[in-house]
């Protein structure tokens, strides 16, 4: 896995203080959202534990000795939730969230593109081979967690491009 490319903000100390100026803050949060998503994407991470994440390099830059405070971590995550990129698994405690660096619709499109380009229309395959099979090892959706895959396939089903067969199989049209 290649080294993650940190954005310039990561080494800019004010990045780790939520800015009181609203305009500045909006730009800052935008950068944080992008960073969180690209970081998770780089690590193929589909969920996030808030306490662990706060100590991980994502929110803690040891080189410049700055750590995003917990309150601010929540601000960033809530911003992502509003955009539809995360979902709390425990909305009351907010300890853990699911991360979708792409929305289910986007995933659906990507999968369908791959299916079409491989001539697999009108065939049935298992969800396991779709995300874990050798054929897809170079695809972005390789290793995707099943909850997200199901959601992505459901969006395709709505467009009548696929049909789920139980929770294990899927037929593409």
């Amino acid at each position: 896995m290649a080294e993650f490319q940190w954005p310039w903000q990561y080494n800019f100390p004010p990045f780790f203080t939520i800015q009181p100026n609203k305009d500045t803050q909006a730009k800052q949060l935008e950068a944080w959202c992008l960073l969180v998503l690209s970081y998770c994407r780089h690590r193929r991470q589909y969920s996030l534990d808030v306490t662990d994440a706060q100590d991980s390099p994502l929110f803690h830059n040891q080189k410049i000795g700055r750590k995003l405070p917990l309150e601010a971590v929540y601000t960033v995550l809530e911003e992502l939730r509003k955009k539809g990129n995360i979902e709390w698994t425990d909305p009351k405690k907010r300890n853990r969230c699911l991360i979708m660096w792409r929305t289910p619709e986007e995933w659906g499109k990507i999968i369908y593109q791959w299916v079409t380009s491989n001539g697999m229309n009108n065939t049935v395959c298992t969800t396991y081979e779709l995300v874990n099979g050798d054929d897809t090892s170079n695809q972005e959706f390789h290793g995707m967690e099943s909850w997200l895959l199901t959601r992505a396939l459901e969006t395709l089903q709505l467009e009548r491009k696929a049909e789920l067969m139980g929770s294990e199989g899927v037929k593409f049209f």
Binding site: P7, W8, Q9, F12, P13, P14, F16, T17, Q19, P20, N21, D23, T24, K27, Q28, E30, A31, L34, R66
Partner: peptide, 28 residues
């Protein structure tokens, strides 16, 4: 800062102000 030309770094060492790179530099 209110005018958007500075941004702050609030740490235990104190309040430090930096030029507002958030608005002058592109996000990526």
């Amino acid at each position: 800062e209110k005018k958007g030309l500075l941004c702050r770094d609030d740490t235990v060492e104190g309040l430090r102000f930096y030029p507002n790179l958030f608005s002058t530099k592109p996000v990526m």
